[in-house]
Design a protein around this nucleic acid. Structure first.
Length: 189
DNA sequence: AAGTAGATGTTCT
DNA sequence: GAACATCTACTTA
């Protein structure tokens, strides 16, 4: 059965947590699905929001693991991260794509689209489909409105990785992880 | 199928 | 001012 993830499940370094999150289930107010694509970001990583050190915007990533780091991107999109790593070391995992399983009608309303495949295929789309806003900034992932459940351990999960998308620094760091062959990815690997 | 422009607000130099 | 962990609509092929 699916086990809720707890704070210590997020205590490892960002790439390890990112890889382990593929196949997990993410719900916000009962709406969401299977995590099929994520990216890791770290304080020692020039592409990360926490690389410059603690700021008002990124402070949640320096807090305890297992909480939400939410940011507003390109003046349009709300994006969701899971804070990970030891407390005090800024790191997080960006949720880039889901395979929708719960609350598809709610997602379709919010997205203004029918195509299941495009509901959550990209970090901005996930944000819109799940109703992510700054109201969720810093909230713990093991309490409502969040629910994060471990991957089903019965069946193996084939994880692929590659370079991250949409960044200009550290472009060769292979910290994008995905479920092999999934049709719900934001882009092919 | 692939490329480009435009939207829009916060953060950074 | 420029950059930015993006998406959509529209063009050209």
């Amino acid at each position: 059965m699916l086990r809720p993830l707890r704070h210590k499940d997020f205590a490892a370094d960002a790439p390890s947590v990112a890889r382990a999150l593929i196949g997990a289930t993410l719900l916000v107010d009962g709406v969401g699905g299977l995590i099929v694509e994520v990216e890791a970001y770290d304080e020692d990583d020039p592409a990360s929001h926490c690389h410059p050190g603690r700021t008002p915007r990124n402070q949640a990533m320096f807090g305890p693991p297992g909480h939400a780091y939410v940011y507003f991107n390109y003046g349009l999109h709300w994006c969701l991260n899971f804070v990970c790593g030891p407390e005090g070391h800024g790191s997080g995992v960006l949720i880039r794509a889901l395979q929708p399983t719960h609350g598809l009608e709610r997602m379709r309303e919010r997205r203004g689209l029918d195509d299941e495949r495009l509901l959550c295929a990209g970090p901005g789309r996930v944000g819109q489909a799940l109703g992510i806003t700054k109201a969720l900034y810093g909230l713990p992932l093991d309490q409502p409105p969040f629910k994060v459940l471990a991957p089903n351990r019965r069946q193996p999960i084939d994880v692929v990785c590659g370079p991250r998308i949409g960044i200009r620094r550290a472009v060769d760091t292979p910290w994008r992880f995905g479920l092999a062959g999934s049709r719900y990815l934001s882009r092919r690997f």
